[in-house]
Design a protein around this nucleic acid. Structure first.
Length: 617
DNA sequence: CTAGGGTTAG
């Protein structure tokens, strides 16, 4: 008669916040005799623990003959809860010797502890997590359960979460016959430790691979930013006919976002819909992120609005998408909506909204956001200070930027000086630029971008001596400039262009188009601004170099091969230089094309001779 | 009653 109520106390309890309801349910379980059954007791305890009724659970637990089933369920619930350290206390208080289940859950608790410590960036928490992790492994050995396959795979990923691949390796070597799960865990551990090639060797040697193994290897490439290989492996996975799960698609979308390949990203979106796959929070978030990072911010927001459920990652992803696409006002509005929806912003959310405010020159609003971090219990990271300096500096309030730096409770990190340097460039403040560079170089003496920035400041003020001095400095210190490259996607294929390079098979056509572009731009009164460019390349390449910045090559190629009604989408690894920016604005007008360019920091949407960044970047 | 892969910034 009362069966329906008892079916699943796990889903029932969270809605019963009231203690009287709790006691009623408890009484009900007792009277009906259900609580005498170890599995019902275990389920009841688990739901108590996971719905934050810990003290109640602790009252219930010792009142009957102890079973490992019940205690293990309790430990498991604690391990998955907000405070995994509680699982250790429960493990210590076990009235019976632990079995392999207990140890498995203990190891999970340690992993969760490590993960949360890493997220909080708290040093003492990390040290503590490390100790707990080692002690969990020790307990598994001491109680004779270290050879249980569930415990083994758990231990491997636990050490991986700690960043201790050596221990993962050692533990893996102990396993006589590792099963698919353990090998997959080891593949992931090696990749997380940066040794993707070792991970790939292990993966290639696997006697059988299921979709999780494929997924782990694809994600492994993503961990080290080798997104092209991730996509290539995904193609192999498709040809192998393996089932494609949601997790795989999330990694694939991350790869698309990183490369900026909108066509493949759209294909994934289509794949999800055509298979009728359910749109989970993670998948939806990955889609929002992919569309944002491919410059399709409108579609990103459509996906965002269509999602049934969103968490702080989803919101932050959308806020950040608006910020990087230069939609500062919308970004701030969305952040406010997020607060209104009762979502607690975290450190990343604040980085995103502060960047958005910076883009739109919303200085006071940004300041208010920064000040509100305290209210949410978010400790500012160095990045947040960097954003604030950028916010003031970009708006031309250099004095405010400086006094903000002086009031910092910590030593300014390189990002802070970098922001000040950039502000000095925008507002032509030579002295401040020099000062910021000095500070920056004291921290990062070989920062090539910083040298280039200072040189640009000198160049803007026609100080050629300064330009050559910086150049000499770089030579003397052996600072190597990162070579610039740009990519453009045509029919799903990504074409790469390098600065001054003539490697593309259709270079002859590109050269003709570049000449045509120059001709038509000159008719509009364009003259090349050689100041930055001259510094950017080696002496012998100077001649003709203005046409050879990688983004111009990519743009010329786009003009050749893409139809007029298709926007030209370029991804560049460095910040766009002033001359190219001016050049591309003009091309967008003269050739009547929409051009979207993602540079190192943000998007530039060019149209009709204007850029969405309003010339501040 | 257990296990391996996946989401936000820089």
């Amino acid at each position: 008669m009362m069966r329906p109520l008892l079916r699943d106390p796990t889903t029932l309890l969270p809605s019963l916040a009231e203690a009287s309801h709790l006691r009623a349910l408890h009484a009900h379980l007792v009277v009906s005799g259900r609580l005498a059954s170890p599995s019902h007791l275990a389920a009841f305890l688990a739901s108590l623990a996971s719905s934050n009724h810990l003290s109640y659970a602790r009252l219930v637990l010792p009142q009957r003959p102890a079973t490992l089933l019940a205690h293990n369920a309790f430990i498991r619930a604690l391990a998955r809860g907000p405070r995994p350290c509680l699982a250790f206390a429960a493990f210590r208080d076990l009235p019976l010797p632990p079995d392999h289940y207990s140890l498995n859950f203990l190891v999970r608790a340690a992993t969760a502890l490590v993960a949360s410590a890493a997220e909080e960036k708290h040093v003492s928490a990390e040290v503590n997590a490390r100790l707990q992790a080692v002690s969990a492994h020790g307990a598994a050995v001491r109680w004779g359960h270290a050879a249980d396959p569930h415990v083994q795979s758990g231990v491997l990923s636990m050490y991986a979460a700690l960043g201790d691949v050596a221990s993962s390796r050692a533990a893996f070597a102990e396993i006589a016959c590792p099963d698919v799960v353990c090998v997959t865990a080891m593949v992931a551990a090696l990749a997380a430790g940066g040794d993707v090639d070792a991970a790939r060797d292990l993966f290639d040697g696997m006697p059988q691979r299921d979709h999780v193994a494929w997924s782990a290897m694809i994600a492994g490439y993503m961990h080290v930013g080798r997104s092209r290989e991730a996509l290539m492996l995904f193609d192999e996975m498709l040809s192998a006919g393996t089932t494609v799960g949601e997790a795989t698609l999330v990694s694939v979308l991350t790869a698309c976002a990183q490369i900026g390949t909108l066509d493949r990203g759209k294909w994934v979106h289509w794949y999800v819909r055509s298979r009728g796959m359910q749109m989970s929070i993670k998948l939806g978030t990955a889609l929002v992120d992919m569309y944002s990072k491919c410059g399709a911010v409108v579609t990103a927001m459509e996906v965002f609005e269509s999602m049934a459920e969103r968490n702080v990652y989803t919101w932050t992803s959308a806020v950040s998408g608006l910020a990087m696409n230069g939609m500062g006002t919308e970004c701030l509005q969305l952040f406010k909506r997020m607060e209104g929806a009762g979502i607690q912003p975290n450190g990343v959310s604040f980085v995103a909204v502060l960047r958005g405010c910076s883009m739109a020159g919303l200085v006071d609003e940004g300041r208010a956001c920064f000040d509100s971090m305290d209210k949410y219990g978010v400790d500012p990271w160095p990045e947040h200070y960097g954003c604030m300096v950028d916010l003031y500096g970009r708006a031309g309030r250099l004095d405010d930027a400086i006094s903000f730096i002086n009031d910092m409770p910590m030593e300014p990190h390189e990002g802070v000086w970098g922001a000040l340097l950039n502000a000095s460039r925008i507002h032509n403040s030579v002295d401040l630029g020099k000062y910021a560079l000095d500070k920056l170089l004291a921290i990062e003496s070989e920062n090539d971008a910083a040298h280039v920035q200072l040189s640009n400041i000198y160049a803007e003020s026609q100080n050629w001596k300064g330009v050559s001095r910086v150049r000499g400095m770089m030579k003397a210190k052996g600072v190597k400039k990162v070579p610039g490259w740009s990519t453009i996607e045509v029919d799903g294929k990504v074409h790469e262009f390098y600065v001054g390079g003539r490697l593309h098979p259709r270079y002859n056509e590109i050269e003709l188009m570049l000449a045509e572009m120059d001709r038509r731009l000159r008719l509009q009164g364009y003259t090349a601004n050689t100041r930055e460019v001259l510094f950017d390349i080696e002496e012998e390449e100077k001649e003709g170099a203005i046409s050879l910045h990688s983004e111009k090559l990519a743009l010329a190629f786009g003009l050749i091969v893409l139809p007029e009604d298709v926007e030209i989408r370029i991804v560049k690894n460095l910040r766009v230089c002033m001359d190219c920016h001016r050049y591309i604005k003009l091309v967008s007008k003269v050739f009547n094309r929409e051009i979207v360019m993602r540079d190192r920091n943000r998007f530039h949407h060019f149209k009709g001779g204007e850029c969405s960044c309003r010339d501040y970047w």
